[in-house]
Every structure is written in C-alpha cells, then in structure tokens.
Amino acid sequence: MKVYLDVIWALNLLFDTFLLYLTAIILKRQVKLWRLCLGGTIGSLLIILAITPFHSAAGHPAGKLFFSILMVLAAFGYKRFRFFFKALMTFYVTTFLLGGTLTGYITSSNLI
C-alpha cells in the first residue's frame, strides 16, 4: 500500500482550516479567509514535521498545544486574553466534537 504524503497533508490542511472556520461561526466572529488558511497551514505543519527528526517534539502534547495556540493566534489574533482564551477553548471543543462524531460514524457504519 502506498501512502501519499501530499494527499495526507492537503487533507489535514483543509480539515484544520474547516475547524477554524467552524470556530469562527460558533463565536460569531468575522475572520478573513487568508487568516483561516494561515492557521490551517500552521496546523498542517505537524504532518510535515512527523517525517523529520523533530517528530518526537511535534508528537508531544506540549508541541501540539503550542501549534494549536499558534493556529488560533493566526486565525483570530490577540486583542485581550479573554478573547484569545475563548477562541482557543471553542477551537478545542469544536475539534473534540467533530473528532468524536466522525469516529462514532465510522465505527457504527462498519467502515473500519
């Protein structure tokens, strides 16, 4: 079986951008498309780092926390701490809800 890194990276880029877009919708914030794409690009760098010598740092929970903070900063900016923290927590809730929904759908439909 062949694994195409570019396809995995592109899928991750789109999914990260979509998660940031859903976060913006939930928070009812106007965000420019280029900022959402920048945040998605930052998040998708974890896929690229997974095949480099930095894979252990990128896979560590602190590394993932760092990248998620950078994603939210790129997409929503920093006006004050409460504004940023609310965006970050909404991003996490959106990620967990969508991840759980997709996992539940895949396991209930016997696609695995």
Rank of each mutant, 00 (worst) to 15 (best):
S44M: 05
I106F: 10
S56I: 02
A24I: 06
L22S: 12
K28Y: 01
L36K: 10
K86Q: 11
M71R: 10
A10Q: 07
I69H: 06
K64W: 03
L45C: 11
S56G: 00
V7C: 00
L97S: 12
L20Q: 07
A62Y: 01
A57Y: 01
I26M: 15
P53S: 10
T94G: 09
F76I: 09
F83S: 13
L19G: 12
T101S: 14
H55R: 13
T17H: 02
K28I: 01
R82H: 05
A10V: 02
M71Y: 01
A87S: 12
S108W: 12
A58C: 02
L36F: 05
V3C: 02
T94H: 11
M71G: 03
T107L: 15
T90S: 13
L97I: 13
T17A: 14
L22H: 11
K32E: 11
L33W: 12
R82G: 00
V31W: 02
T101D: 12
L88P: 06
R29Q: 09
T52M: 02
L70F: 04
L27F: 08
I106T: 13
L98G: 06
M71F: 04
T101L: 15
M71S: 06
F76D: 10
L70C: 12
M71Q: 12
P53F: 00
T41L: 15
F66K: 07
Y105M: 15
L36I: 03
I51K: 13
L27W: 08
K28T: 01
G39K: 11
V3W: 00
I48S: 11
L88E: 06
G100Y: 06
